[in-house]
Design a binder for these strands. Structure first.
Lengths: 132, 132
DNA sequence: CTTGAACCTCAAGTGGCTTGAGGGCGTAGC
DNA sequence: GCTACGCCCTCAAGCCACTTGAGGTTCAAG
């Protein structure tokens, strides 16, 4: 199949496929008249890449996962990566929740303090209120 | 004061200050012998920039906030921006929580299904399990 | 034979800086 | 006066994971 067909089948953009090839994530396929021709193995690999990217693994992690699959020892390696990844997702959630609380407090502070009254400066802009 | 002093006072790196100037976020200060010399207004502006960045406003939003402050109508404009920002923070939290649930399910599925038994393929790698 | 879609490569843009190379300014000690 | 050192300067490239655009080629249909 040609690159457009592969792209639709895997749910990935055509430039993204060429990008993955350029960084060595996907192996370059055969060519016919200069055009890339892919097989079902390529579709499987690309689908796995898409799956990993949807789970928000980085390109490097995705590369490791592909390598594990090719070594036929995917499970243990992948679970370690997934657990580590889960940790960083949870860390980011915690950070964003702290940020959410800060900004929400500033907005409600603005409503009760400066927007509602004749206060001089908006609390949202006070330095030190919400240092992350 | 020179750039290094300003940087320490505001808690921002020296290259970041030069970057902010280069993109027109901060106005270029006077020079002495080619070196930038800042005053207390510059410190206030830069501190506000840092505050906005810590609240995770984008550079463009920060630019708008600075402009509002200079128009002396900061409060209403800023509250609107902050509310919008709060919405996007909450949206991102929701996305990350969905992702967390997906990855957590895959990890525990791996533990009970493939790592614990002699299953052929790791569930983490099954396409379609965790499409975002 | 021509049209048009799909393909090709290469370069630049996104955001928000950081890092590095290669050189200038200012002050203190000798 | 000279040197050493720290701070300053500009400009360019790097990070991530692509997207977008320009300009040209190949392929299938009419």
């Amino acid at each position: 199949m040609r690159i457009g067909v592969l792209a639709k089948a895997a749910g990935v953009s055509v430039p993204a496929i060429r990008y993955y090839e350029s960084i060595g994530l996907l192996t370059p396929p055969a060519r016919q008249g200069g055009q890339r021709i892919y097989g079902s193995d390529d579709l499987r690999a690309l689908s796995l890449v898409r799956h990993c990217r949807e789970l928000d693994f980085s390109i490097d992690e995705t590369r490791d996962i592909l390598a594990s699959v090719q070594r036929r020892s995917p499970c243990r390696d992948t679970k370690v990566l997934a657990e580590k990844h889960l940790g960083s997702i949870r860390k980011k959630i915690a950070e964003l929740r702290a940020l959410e609380a800060t900004v929400a407090a500033l907005v409600s502070g603005c409503e009760t303090t400066c927007c509602g009254s004749a206060a001089p400066d908006c609390v949202i802009l006070q330095p030190g209120c919400g240092a992350a």
